[in-house]
Amino acid sequence: MTAAHGPARRGGDEVIEVKPAHDFDGVATMLGPKKPESSVCWCLSWRLSSKENRELVGVARADRVRELCARDVAPGVLAYLDGEVVGWGGVAPRSELYPIENSRKIPHVDDLPVWSLWCMRVRPGFRKQGVTRALIDGAVDYARRSGAPVVESYPVDNRGERVDQTMAFVGTRAMFERAGFAKVADTDSVSGGVPRIVMRLALTP
Protein backbone atom coordinates (compact mmCIF):
# COMPACT_ATOMS: atom_id res chain seq x y z
CA MET A 1 0.00 0.00 0.00
CA THR A 2 1.27 3.47 -0.83
CA ALA A 3 0.06 6.24 1.44
CA ALA A 4 -0.08 9.83 0.38
CA HIS A 5 1.99 12.36 2.24
CA GLY A 6 0.63 13.72 5.48
CA PRO A 7 -0.70 17.23 5.92
CA ALA A 8 1.77 20.08 5.61
CA ARG A 9 1.98 22.72 8.34
CA ARG A 10 3.86 25.98 8.54
CA GLY A 11 7.13 26.04 10.46
CA GLY A 12 8.04 29.72 10.54
CA ASP A 13 8.24 30.65 6.86
CA GLU A 14 8.83 27.05 5.76
CA VAL A 15 6.44 24.18 5.15
CA ILE A 16 6.66 21.05 7.32
CA GLU A 17 5.83 17.95 5.31
CA VAL A 18 5.16 14.60 6.95
CA LYS A 19 5.70 11.35 5.06
CA PRO A 20 5.56 7.62 5.90
CA ALA A 21 9.00 6.56 7.13
CA HIS A 22 10.20 4.46 4.21
CA ASP A 23 13.44 6.46 4.07
CA PHE A 24 15.88 4.51 6.24
CA ASP A 25 18.50 7.25 6.09
CA GLY A 26 15.94 9.72 7.43
CA VAL A 27 15.04 7.37 10.27
CA ALA A 28 18.74 6.89 11.01
CA THR A 29 19.17 10.65 11.23
CA MET A 30 16.48 10.76 13.90
CA LEU A 31 17.10 7.52 15.79
CA GLY A 32 20.50 6.07 14.87
CA PRO A 33 23.76 6.21 16.84
CA LYS A 34 26.83 8.20 15.83
CA LYS A 35 28.79 4.94 15.71
CA PRO A 36 26.96 2.30 13.60
CA GLU A 37 28.06 -0.53 15.88
CA SER A 38 26.55 1.08 18.97
CA SER A 39 23.33 -0.30 20.42
CA VAL A 40 20.61 2.32 20.77
CA CYS A 41 16.84 2.08 21.03
CA TRP A 42 15.95 2.81 17.37
CA CYS A 43 12.35 2.82 18.77
CA LEU A 44 12.56 -0.99 18.68
CA SER A 45 12.16 -1.26 22.46
CA TRP A 46 8.47 -0.56 21.86
CA ARG A 47 8.14 -3.24 19.19
CA LEU A 48 10.09 -6.23 20.46
CA SER A 49 9.72 -8.59 23.38
CA SER A 50 12.21 -8.03 26.21
CA LYS A 51 14.18 -11.11 25.16
CA GLU A 52 14.42 -10.12 21.51
CA ASN A 53 15.24 -6.54 22.41
CA ARG A 54 18.14 -7.68 24.60
CA GLU A 55 19.49 -10.06 21.98
CA LEU A 56 19.33 -7.62 19.06
CA VAL A 57 22.48 -5.51 19.33
CA GLY A 58 24.69 -3.22 17.28
CA VAL A 59 24.17 -3.09 13.53
CA ALA A 60 21.52 -5.82 13.77
CA ARG A 61 19.19 -3.22 15.23
CA ALA A 62 19.73 -0.95 12.25
CA ASP A 63 19.13 -3.91 9.94
CA ARG A 64 15.79 -4.58 11.61
CA VAL A 65 14.73 -0.97 11.14
CA ARG A 66 15.83 -1.09 7.50
CA GLU A 67 13.53 -4.10 7.03
CA LEU A 68 10.65 -2.21 8.66
CA CYS A 69 11.19 0.77 6.37
CA ALA A 70 11.03 -1.51 3.33
CA ARG A 71 7.60 -2.91 4.24
CA ASP A 72 4.37 -1.59 2.79
CA VAL A 73 3.42 -0.34 6.25
CA ALA A 74 6.11 2.08 7.41
CA PRO A 75 7.33 1.96 11.03
CA GLY A 76 6.28 5.56 11.58
CA VAL A 77 6.40 8.98 9.96
CA LEU A 78 9.13 11.54 9.30
CA ALA A 79 8.77 15.32 9.27
CA TYR A 80 10.73 17.37 6.76
CA LEU A 81 11.41 21.10 6.82
CA ASP A 82 12.62 22.51 3.52
CA GLY A 83 13.57 18.95 2.50
CA GLU A 84 15.58 18.23 5.68
CA VAL A 85 14.39 15.57 8.12
CA VAL A 86 13.56 17.20 11.45
CA GLY A 87 11.19 14.86 13.29
CA TRP A 88 10.12 11.27 13.89
CA GLY A 89 6.80 9.86 15.01
CA GLY A 90 6.43 6.17 15.88
CA VAL A 91 2.95 5.07 14.78
CA ALA A 92 1.81 1.53 14.00
CA PRO A 93 -0.92 -0.98 14.72
CA ARG A 94 -0.88 -1.65 18.45
CA SER A 95 -0.84 -5.37 17.64
CA GLU A 96 2.73 -4.92 16.26
CA LEU A 97 4.02 -3.31 19.45
CA TYR A 98 4.73 -6.21 21.79
CA PRO A 99 5.36 -4.26 25.03
CA ILE A 100 2.24 -2.11 24.56
CA GLU A 101 -0.02 -4.85 23.21
CA ASN A 102 0.91 -7.09 26.14
CA SER A 103 1.25 -4.40 28.79
CA ARG A 104 -0.29 -4.98 32.20
CA LYS A 105 -0.11 -1.24 32.86
CA ILE A 106 -1.66 0.22 29.68
CA PRO A 107 -5.18 -1.17 29.30
CA HIS A 108 -7.02 -2.22 26.17
CA VAL A 109 -10.09 0.00 26.02
CA ASP A 110 -11.93 -2.33 23.63
CA ASP A 111 -11.27 -4.78 20.80
CA LEU A 112 -10.87 -2.24 17.99
CA PRO A 113 -7.71 -2.68 15.86
CA VAL A 114 -6.26 0.62 17.03
CA TRP A 115 -3.03 2.22 15.88
CA SER A 116 -0.69 3.59 18.55
CA LEU A 117 1.33 6.81 18.39
CA TRP A 118 3.88 6.14 21.07
CA CYS A 119 6.98 8.22 20.35
CA MET A 120 7.82 11.65 18.92
CA ARG A 121 11.21 13.21 18.51
CA VAL A 122 12.25 16.57 17.12
CA ARG A 123 15.84 17.39 16.21
CA PRO A 124 17.57 20.02 18.35
CA GLY A 125 17.44 23.36 16.62
CA PHE A 126 13.97 22.67 15.20
CA ARG A 127 11.93 22.62 18.39
CA LYS A 128 9.05 25.02 19.06
CA GLN A 129 8.49 25.41 15.32
CA GLY A 130 5.34 23.31 15.01
CA VAL A 131 7.12 20.04 14.21
CA THR A 132 5.49 18.03 17.01
CA ARG A 133 1.97 19.07 15.99
CA ALA A 134 2.83 18.28 12.37
CA LEU A 135 4.02 14.82 13.44
CA ILE A 136 0.78 14.14 15.30
CA ASP A 137 -1.35 15.30 12.37
CA GLY A 138 0.78 13.37 9.91
CA ALA A 139 0.68 10.19 12.00
CA VAL A 140 -3.10 10.44 12.28
CA ASP A 141 -3.39 10.98 8.55
CA TYR A 142 -1.18 7.97 7.81
CA ALA A 143 -3.18 5.75 10.18
CA ARG A 144 -6.43 6.91 8.58
CA ARG A 145 -5.15 6.20 5.07
CA SER A 146 -4.04 2.77 6.28
CA GLY A 147 -7.55 1.90 7.45
CA ALA A 148 -7.18 2.43 11.20
CA PRO A 149 -10.48 3.15 12.98
CA VAL A 150 -8.81 4.83 15.95
CA VAL A 151 -5.42 6.26 16.94
CA GLU A 152 -4.28 5.95 20.56
CA SER A 153 -1.55 7.79 22.43
CA TYR A 154 -0.17 7.34 25.94
CA PRO A 155 1.05 10.79 27.06
CA VAL A 156 1.78 12.06 30.54
CA ASP A 157 -0.98 13.92 32.37
CA ASN A 158 1.44 16.54 33.67
CA ARG A 159 -1.19 19.20 34.46
CA GLY A 160 1.01 21.95 33.08
CA GLU A 161 4.09 20.94 35.07
CA ARG A 162 7.47 20.77 33.38
CA VAL A 163 8.27 17.40 31.77
CA ASP A 164 11.73 15.83 31.92
CA GLN A 165 13.10 16.18 28.38
CA THR A 166 14.52 12.65 28.46
CA MET A 167 10.95 11.34 28.81
CA ALA A 168 9.20 13.95 26.67
CA PHE A 169 8.93 11.56 23.72
CA VAL A 170 5.57 10.28 25.00
CA GLY A 171 3.99 13.73 24.69
CA THR A 172 1.62 15.53 27.04
CA ARG A 173 -2.14 15.48 27.51
CA ALA A 174 -2.50 19.11 26.41
CA MET A 175 -0.50 18.47 23.26
CA PHE A 176 -2.86 15.71 22.16
CA GLU A 177 -5.99 17.56 23.25
CA ARG A 178 -5.01 20.37 20.88
CA ALA A 179 -4.87 17.76 18.12
CA GLY A 180 -8.40 16.53 18.89
CA PHE A 181 -7.62 13.54 21.13
CA ALA A 182 -9.60 12.86 24.31
CA LYS A 183 -8.74 10.91 27.45
CA VAL A 184 -10.43 7.50 27.56
CA ALA A 185 -8.62 5.68 30.39
CA ASP A 186 -6.06 5.90 33.15
CA THR A 187 -3.00 3.66 33.18
CA ASP A 188 -0.64 2.28 35.80
CA SER A 189 2.30 3.48 33.69
CA VAL A 190 4.44 6.51 34.50
CA SER A 191 7.07 8.43 32.56
CA GLY A 192 9.58 10.52 34.44
CA GLY A 193 7.49 9.96 37.56
CA VAL A 194 4.35 11.43 35.91
CA PRO A 195 1.20 9.31 35.34
CA ARG A 196 0.35 8.38 31.76
CA ILE A 197 -3.15 8.16 30.31
CA VAL A 198 -4.77 6.64 27.24
CA MET A 199 -6.02 9.20 24.73
CA ARG A 200 -7.88 8.49 21.51
CA LEU A 201 -8.97 10.06 18.27
CA ALA A 202 -11.65 8.28 16.25
CA LEU A 203 -10.96 8.33 12.50
CA THR A 204 -13.26 8.49 9.51
CA PRO A 205 -12.40 7.19 6.05
Score class of each variant (00 low, 15 high):
Asp137Trp: 14
Glu37Pro: 00
Arg144Asp: 07
Gly125Trp: 06
Arg196Ala: 07
Leu68Phe: 02
Lys105Cys: 11
Leu201Ser: 15
Arg71Gly: 07
Met1Lys: 08
Pro195Val: 09
Ser189Asp: 12
Phe181Met: 03
Arg145Tyr: 03
Pro36Leu: 00
Gly12Thr: 11
Asp63Lys: 09
Lys34Gln: 11
Thr187Lys: 06
Val86Ile: 01
Phe24Arg: 02
Phe176Gly: 06
Lys183Leu: 10
Lys128Asn: 10
Leu201Asp: 11
Phe126Tyr: 07
Trp46Leu: 13
Thr187Trp: 03
Ser39Val: 05
Glu101Arg: 08
Glu161Asn: 12
Arg54Cys: 06
Val170Pro: 06
Gly160Ile: 13
Trp42Ile: 02
Glu101His: 03
Glu17Asn: 00
Ala182Thr: 14
Pro36Arg: 02
Val151Asp: 11
Val15Ile: 12
Arg54Pro: 11
Leu68Gly: 05
Pro149Trp: 08
Val140Ser: 08
Pro99Thr: 10
Gly180Gln: 09
Met1Trp: 08
Ala62Phe: 01
Met175Ile: 07
Gly76Arg: 05
Ala8Asn: 04
Lys183Phe: 04
Phe181Glu: 04
Leu68Asp: 04
Asp63Leu: 09
Leu56Trp: 03
Cys41Ile: 02
Phe176Trp: 12
Val86Ser: 04
Val91Ile: 08
Asp63Arg: 11
Ser189Val: 12
Asp82Asn: 15
Glu177Lys: 10
Ile136Cys: 01
Arg133Val: 01
Val57Trp: 00
Thr29Lys: 03
Arg196Pro: 04
Arg144Ser: 12
Glu96Arg: 12
Ile16Ala: 15
Ala179Glu: 09
Arg71Trp: 05
Thr29Met: 03
Ala182Trp: 15
Val65Glu: 00
Arg47Tyr: 02
Ser45Tyr: 08
Tyr98Met: 03
Arg127Gln: 06
Arg104Leu: 10
Trp42Gly: 00
Glu96Asn: 12
Gly160Thr: 09
Arg173Gly: 09
Leu68Ser: 05
Val73Glu: 13
Asp164Asn: 13
Asp82Arg: 12
Ser39Ile: 01
Leu97Thr: 10
Ala185Ile: 04
Val109Met: 12
Gly160Val: 09
Trp118Cys: 13
Ile100Pro: 05
Phe24Ala: 05
Gly83Lys: 14
Pro205Leu: 14
Gly160Glu: 07
Gly90Arg: 07
Met1Ala: 10
Val59Pro: 00
Arg145Val: 03
Ala4Val: 08
Glu161Thr: 12
Val65Asp: 04
Val27Ile: 04
Val122Glu: 14
Pro93Asn: 14
Phe24Glu: 01
Gly89Ala: 02
Ala28Ile: 10
Leu48Glu: 00
Asp13Val: 06
Met199Val: 10
Pro124Gln: 15
Ala8Val: 06
Glu37Phe: 05
Arg54Ala: 04
Glu67Gly: 00
Ala74Thr: 04
Met1Asn: 09
Pro36Thr: 05
Pro75Tyr: 02
Leu68Val: 07
His108Glu: 13
Ala8Met: 05
Arg127Pro: 01
Arg200Ala: 10
Lys19Pro: 05
